[in-house]
Design a binder for these strands. Structure first.
Lengths: 224, 224
DNA sequence: ATTGTTTGTAGAATTAATTCTACTGTTATA
DNA sequence: TATAACAGTAGAATTAATTCTACAAACAAT
């Protein structure tokens, strides 16, 4: 391997950033795609200058690694191969209250960004963001020394909490994939009525379509 | 930025690979996630030593860039923000018959690997592969070696594997919760056509509604 | 070489679903 | 207590989506 290629990478490709000699962040990346892990790691190393970065691919490894080493920052995807990290986040939060967590997910920030706040997570970054914003976010995240005092979990921001009884009733059928006509027959309502209520459900939850509604419901553990 | 960090990256993290001084590959990466692009680029630069790499994020940019510069290798994801690259691949193949193409996708090889072969693409790499395999595949790709057959994957019962290219293309939109009308507009098809194809998708997968289809897709890791 | 099957595409007819409007109770709230 | 926001329900009009049929081209199997 040639140093020239390296310097090329360095000087031409990436903005130089001075490092802060005082801080010693220890970062753990949890993502099931090695390319994402690698890219993120190299990125943080080359652009932000922090080199103490480990990676894991599964929830299992994540928990083990957190026990083994004392990390200051955790960057993780929501979905790993062996499960949903949202399930383990409450535990992590309880055991490691000072750990800074950044969720780095495929999902758009508008929906999940707010949603994960319930779990006491203050940093959310979509994988779809551009490079500029990504670096900025990462920089803010890692340089932020003060552990985030999270305004205690409002269950008020659960969008499903605001649904009226009839709306929840119809939500139940909608989440099962049942169509407007069948729902109206089941509940002895006109299709118009069901449609109206569905519209209100979508308004209140800010879901754009069934797929998003199902995802949101999963996120908030709505089983109805 | 310190050279020590770089060397650390080099010597500790990545296997050294000798480069071939004769070849001068010019590589274009098309992916809508800047992290993937960056990671891939750095990876190829640092581990394989090829530094002539450009990146684009959309189908549009891709086509423009191919006109502007003469590339030898193209690495691309199937889904970009402004469309499905399966739509443009036939055109690319026709205009640039000598261009080596590697599809680098989230989808498991069993499903899209076959579909993509119909377009004369022999290199397919899932983003879920481990680092070793990724580097090996990239190396073979860039060095123009014949790709190895991966017959190790069985999954005979995967219902998505029987979907035709157009069906997979429409499946992509359906799984995102996009409606028939919008799909038809995106792909310049009549709504009837989209409906017909959706019907065939539901028949082949035995899904009864979108919810079931999404569940099935999740089960078989056909997310995008 | 022939025949059956899959794929990609729609037109016509029909059905499903939504939107816009509106009315009546009910429940907070100023 | 007056008043505004919300909840539950539809009619009329409109739009979205499906079904049924069909046909040509590509492909597979005999």
């Amino acid at each position: 391997m040639e140093i020239r290629a390296l310097m090329n990478v360095l000087t031409n490709e990436l903005p130089a950033v001075k490092l802060n000699p005082v801080m010693q962040p220890k970062i753990l990346i949890a993502d099931d795609h090695s390319m994402i892990r690698k890219g993120l790691k190299l990125h943080v190393q080359l652009t932000l200058g922090f080199t103490d970065i480990d990676e894991v691919a599964t929830c299992n490894e994540l928990m083990k690694e957190l026990v083994k080493n004392k990390y200051t920052h955790l960057i993780l995807d929501i979905i790993l191969s062996d499960g949903n990290t949202l399930e383990v986040i409450p535990n992590i939060r309880r055991v490691y209250p000072d750990l800074n967590i950044l969720v780095f997910s495929m999902q758009p920030a508008e929906i999940y960004g707010e949603a994960v706040k319930q779990y006491g997570i203050n940093y959310y970054m979509s994988k779809a963001v551009g490079e500029e914003e990504m670096i900025q976010t990462l920089q803010k995240f890692i340089h932020n020394e003060t552990p985030h005092k999270r305004t205690d979990i409002h269950h008020q921001d659960n969008p499903f909490k605001t649904l009226a009884p009839r709306e929840l009733e119809i939500l139940h059928y909608v989440l099962k994939g049942i169509g407007t006509k069948e729902i109206s027959e089941n509940l002895n309502l006109k299709m118009n009525t069901v449609s109206t209520i569905k519209t209100r459900i979508y308004e209140k939850t800010n879901a754009g379509n069934i797929k998003e509604l199902i995802e949101l419901a999963t996120l908030y553990n709505v089983n109805y």
